[in-house]
Amino acid sequence: MTALLTVSQLNKSYGGVRATDDLNLEVMTGELHAVIGPNGAGKTTLISQLSGNVFPDSGTISFDGIDITHMVEHARPHLGIARTYQITSLINSMSVIENLQLAIQAKQGHSFKFWKPYADNKDVRTAAHEYAARVDLGSRAEMQVANLSHGEQRRLEVAMALASDARLLLLDEPLAGLGPEEASDMISLLETLKGQQTIVLIEHDMDAVFTLADRISVMVYGHIIATGDPYHIRQNQDVQHAYLGED
């Protein structure tokens, strides 16, 4: 197995706070790699640096052998990196299908097409419907995103990342705010993705993480303190300390 994503010596500070502290991470092609850690460990900051929304103070990020540390955010999806947001971030004024269409079209060259009505773009529409169906939003296809339930929005969040046909998915707490039933739907969805795509999963739901992950990295105060398969992480003393305190 080769590493698709390699993060080395990454640092990022906000004022005096080191959100990312000398962080090293290797994500293998095809694995589902979960990153867990207590609140405030800097997990979202890590995702933001991987997706290019925030630039690190030092260190390197390389994706498939290319140094992307300083690559602008909008260029990274074209290499095959897609992210979702912990706090749902969709285009609320548009329908489910229109959101997915935009995600699909983002990868199809430029959109400086001023003339042809986008509604005529049958292939993209068909593909958008397929993605909607895949996350069980087929019946909601024409509905405005603002009118979807929270669970449906979370699923669309994931579908948007899928629609961009990425090689690396950065999923930032896809289960955030979901009820038990919706959560188990989402877990089944993520299970279907496992092995298909390389995934970095940030999640607080430990059941989900230990069910889904091939490997787990534990992050505390901006630093990865342990990486390993679920069994070893469960046994790791440091991890137990981090989560349960000294006793």
Binding site: N53, A82, I91, N92, M94, M160, S164
Partner: peptide
């Protein structure tokens, strides 16, 4: 329209 609705998401999708 997507940019008006949510510019950050459009950037994250790969739109300049």
């Amino acid at each position: 329209a997507g940019i008006k609705g949510n510019e950050q998401r459009m950037i994250a999708m790969g739109y300049n």
